[in-house]
Design a protein around this nucleic acid. Sequence first.
DNA 1: ATGTGCATGTAATCAGTTACATGATTCC
DNA 2: GGAATCATGTAACTGATTACATGCACAT
Lengths: 193, 193
Amino acid sequence: MTGYDLAKVFDRSVEFVWHAPHSQIYPELRRMEADGLIAAESLFRGRRPKRVYAITADGRRELEQWVAEPSVPERVRDPQRLKTTYLEFASYDDARRHFRVHLEHYEIWRRRWASHVEQLADRATPLLRRRLAAEGIGDPEAIVAYKVHAYRGMVRQAELEVEWAREGLRLVDELEAEARKPSPVPGAERSSG
Amino acid sequence: MTGYDLAKVFDRSVEFVWHAPHSQIYPELRRMEADGLIAAESLFRGRRPKRVYAITADGRRELEQWVAEPSVPERVRDPQRLKTTYLEFASYDDARRHFRVHLEHYEIWRRRWASHVEQLADRATPLLRRRLAAEGIGDPEAIVAYKVHAYRGMVRQAELEVEWAREGLRLVDELEAEARKPSPVPGAERSSG
DNA sequence: ATGTGCATGTAATCAGTTACATGATTCC
DNA sequence: GGAATCATGTAACTGATTACATGCACAT
């Protein structure tokens, strides 16, 4: 593939587990080429060449090493959850806006990931078709099954976030209703449930 | 607090939604001081001073602005899920190891987050006690409720990851069992369920 | 004396974002 | 002719990691 193709895959297309802008992709491709992990063929159509990359034997070995070693999950850094922790500094409306943005974001992504899972299960994505059409690749069941499992994980994550945001909205409503009530006499909360 | 105190809070203590090493904290504190968001008091005990920071009025305003504007979640970048997508390049044992590491990691964090939720609900964490003891702060219910909600989100995320990893392990077992079987005659899958 | 915890930094490097920059081709 | 898409880069900056570096206080 070319850098441009990759940018599409990362950005607009279906590979929704990793994002990278083209400004990161092009230099990285050059670095990988210099390291011998990929090789480019320059195609001239019209005047300017485009560089079509393919993996080398060394690159394949590197890829296999990478999948073989389990990567330890990174230290948590969750901007949304961090901000939630300090929502008492915001107005009720701002707090609601916080959860609504979260909800809408993950609702969109839930749909994207879900439809991608369907496409994978149907073996309908261009990349997957290419992989399955190639010869000498291992178990086609495994190729599909691992991807489906990965993206199902993303779908569930999104579902969780949508639900969590909904509960957040309900929480804000409750806190606001509670705050509007006349302040209770200390100790009085025992008498009424 | 001092930079050291903050590093503890970020690193070893209970604030499990954001991580930062001290090498990032100290310069950042100096920058925030230069910007007038925090002010330091140098305490001399023995010989070397330690710098105890407190938020300023400007800093408080900045904090309120930060919580008021909803932050749009970042583009997805999920190393574990990415690797899962290419597990067909790994051996079954390496694939299992991948999911086991994931499982153990999130099992540990699930426990941490869950016990933190309990502590928050009991108003038992040192930081929360300090906040609630301070005067002129708003609704104590809200202070606790938002934090509990945030950390409950983390607990559920961890539960999801644990379950997802378990299913991953089952998937690898199935794929391996399937691969060990004599290769089926094409079309034969119709006759037996 | 030795190790643990308190306490504060710097330096080199890497990863990632945003903006700047260009030009060809193809479709309407 | 103009817009969208193909196609490839660089530059400045910010955020984050890893390693290097130092020194005090206190308990065993």
